[in-house]
Write a protein that binds this DNA or RNA. Structure first.
Lengths: 159, 159
DNA sequence: CAAAAGAAACACAAATTATCCGATTATAAA
DNA sequence: TTTATAATCGGATAATTTGTGTTTCTTTTG
C-alpha cells in the first residue's frame, strides 16, 4: 500500500532472520552495532507493513518419508472451470503448490509424495476432478535449488 | 539415518511452529498440557535428528516489488551438461527453484521477477548459458496454493 | 540559516521466555 | 518383579523481548 522503503539495516535484519528466525534480536543488534530495541522496532514495523508475513520451519521431507517430487500440468476442458478445479486440488494435501498459468497448461502444480505408487494415487486424484481433461507429469530427479530467499531480496537494491 | 518416529505431541509442536516459529515454548506447553521443558527437549531432539532443518521468514514479495512468477523449462544440448548449467543457473538470484526432471525438459525452474521486462532479462540469462539449447516459459497468472506445509506432515499419520 | 516538529535510536528497567538440572514418574528389558 | 533406560516435571537461573523516557538525528518551515 504505502511506499515502504527498506534501508540497508532492514535488509541485514531480514537476512539474518531469513537464515534463522530464532536468532536473538540481541545478536542481530551486536552484529549490526545497533541496540536490540531498534531491531525490535524495525522488525515490528516490517511486520505491520506486511512485508514480513510470518515465519515457518524448514522440514526435511525426505526424513519424513516424502522423497518424491513431481510437477503436474493440468489441462481443463474449459477455462471457466479453473476456480472449481483449484478448490478440489486444494483439498489434496500432497499438492503443495498450484498456479494458474498461461501457455500449455491451464493449471500447474507441484506434488510431494512418498513414492511412485503414492504419486500415482495423487495424480489420479487430480485426473478425476470434474473438468480436468488430462494431465502431464514431470518427475523431479533432483531438487537442485530449493527456495533461494536471501539472494532474492538482497539483490533488490541493485537490480 | 536412524528410525525416528514422531508421535502425536511432536506433530502438534511442529504444527504450531510451522505456523509461527516464534510462538513461545510456554504457549505450546500450555496448549498441549505439558511442561515447557518437555517442549524444549522435543524440539531439540527433532533438530538433532535433522527433521527440523531450520526456520525462515515468509516475505511478501509483491510488496518488495517482485510480482512476476514464471516457470521455465530448459532444454540442454546434452544431458552431461546438467551440472554445469545448474551451477550457472544457481548464480542467477531470481531463479528461486530448480529441478532436474524427466520428461520434456532437462531442467525445470521457477523465477521471480519484478515485471515482464525484468523476467525477459532473467530468461535471456538462462538462454545464454553454454549448453542450453532453448527454453520454454510458463507465466503464472496467480499463485493459488503457496506452500502447504501443515497438511503435508499432518496427514503423514494416515496416508 | 535557525528554530521547531517529527522520527528514530538509545539505554535502561520490567516482564516474559528459554534453558538447565535434579527429582520423579513412566516405559521397556531382563 | 527387578533393573535399566528414557521422558517429564517443576522450579531456579540465565537470556531475551518489550516498553518507556530521554537524547540524537532529520526534515520542515518560517
Amino acid at each position: 500500500m504505502s511506499k515502504f522503503r527498506l534501508d540497508e539495516v532492514d535488509h541485514q535484519i531480514l537476512d539474518m532472520l531469513i537464515d534463522n528466525t530464532r536468532v536473538p534480536f540481541t545478536d542481530i543488534a551486536k552484529k549490526l552495532l545497533i541496540s536490540a530495541g531498534t531491531v525490535h522496532v524495525r522488525v515490528k514495523k516490517m511486520e505491520d507493513a506486511g512485508i514480513i508475513m510470518g515465519s515457518s520451519l524448514t522440514l526435511d521431507y525426505e526424513k519424513l518419508g516424502y522423497s518424491f517430487i513431481a510437477y503436474v500440468g493440468v489441462f481443463l476442458n474449459n477455462t471457466s472451470q479453473t476456480k472449481f478445479v483449484l478448490e478440489r486440488i486444494n483439498e489434496i494435501p500432497f499438492v503443495t503448490v498450484a498456479h494458474v498459468t498461461t501457455g500449455k497448461f491451464n493449471i500447474f502444480c507441484k506434488i510431494r509424495a512418498k513414492d511412485t505408487k503414492h504419486a500415482k494415487d495423487v495424480i489420479f486424484m487430480i485426473d478425476d476432478i470434474d473438468g480436468v481433461y488430462r494431465t502431464e507429469t514431470m518427475i523431479s530427479l533432483e531438487e537442485s535449488i530449493n527456495d533461494k530467499k536471501r539472494l532474492m531480496h538482497t539483490i533488490f537494491k541493485n537490480m
